[in-house]
């Protein structure tokens, strides 16, 4: 395509092509500290004009690629970097079979991983980003990749996608220079990307052993309740994009995860409280 960039995020390499220069320039800026990929990419993403003339007239970005959804709505050209993010997520969600994918954020300390799963708005991305400012290594804010053979978690540290109030919250913790451009009026509201820190990028190929699973829920009075393996299993099948197609291998990997790793549902009113709760739960691990 006319404009293109290669990106390697953790173990996954993408090729993103675009009809316009803008989205590629924005991606290059957002991922400027990442080592460029070598070899053949795992996935191709295309940011295309839905019709040839839509390249110039009321330009809007249609997300296509190796794997796509038939009725995806086009995005405003100004939100091209969001389109690329959606495209990369879709490739993994629909095409990836090497790992069990959990829709979760994750951080690492001492070779052990904390996995946080929950709906959009639960605060898992913000919590991971804040923990990364307190000595944890950010592994990712979207997908945790569970190795089917070893059970280890692999990092997928793409730029953290922060929405609305979470942007202001993170500006309290990290300098403005770490952020990408502000996108307003996206389907998800106001959106800004946060570049992962140097540690997250330098160690993005290092796996970690899952040690604790949390289901955070922002905006509630402080409460922590242990969750049994059966409930964790069911909730994580819902949080996995490829549990069903993986068949037996997915079942085995998930069973191993939920029986080996303690799980806690964590309600919290604000981020500082959540960090305190996480540290307490982490310290109490065997």
């Amino acid at each position: 395509m006319r404009h293109a960039i290669g990106l390697k995020i953790g173990p996954v390499a993408f090729r993103v092509g675009s009809d316009w220069a803008g989205p590629i320039a924005a991606l290059a800026d957002l991922y400027r500290d990442y080592p460029p990929p070598t070899g053949v990419p795992d996935y191709t993403v295309r940011l295309e004009a839905a019709r040839p003339w839509r390249r110039w007239i009321r330009p809007s970005v249609t997300v296509r690629g190796d794997h796509m959804l038939p009725d995806a709505l086009p995005l405003d050209l100004a939100h091209g970097v969001l389109a690329a993010e959606i495209g990369m997520n879709l490739q993994l969600a629909l095409g990836e079979r090497r790992w069990l994918l959990l829709h979760a954020s994750s951080v690492e300390r001492d070779g052990r991983a904390l996995i946080m799963s929950g709906e959009s708005g639960s605060g898992k991305s913000t919590l991971a980003a804040v923990l990364a400012t307190r000595g944890w290594r950010l592994m990712g804010d979207e997908f945790a990749l569970i190795d089917l053979a070893t059970g280890a978690a692999r990092a997928f540290p793409r730029a953290t996608s922060l929405k609305n109030g979470a942007i202001d919250e993170m500006l309290r913790h990290v300098p403005d220079a770490r952020f990408g451009a502000a996108l307003t009026g996206t389907p998800k509201g106001r959106l800004r990307h946060l570049r992962p820190d140097a540690q997250a990028i330098a160690r993005m190929d290092a796996p970690a052993i899952p040690a604790l699973i949390l289901f955070p829920q922002f905006g509630r009075p402080e409460a922590a309740e242990a969750m049994g393996p059966a409930e964790t299993f069911v909730r994580l099948t819902q949080a996995s994009t490829n549990y069903v197609p993986l068949g037996r291998a997915g079942y085995d990997a998930l069973t191993r995860l939920v029986t080996a790793v303690p799980t806690v549902a964590v309600d919290y009113p604000d981020t500082d409280t959540a960090v305190g709760m996480v540290e307490q739960l982490w310290a109490a691990l065997p």
Binding site: T38, V40, P41, G95, E96, R98
Partner: peptide, 12 residues
């Protein structure tokens, strides 16, 4: 990198 692609496609 082609081998990684091939393995994923074979599993699929």
């Amino acid at each position: 990198t082609v081998a990684a692609w091939r393995d994923n496609a074979a599993v699929q």
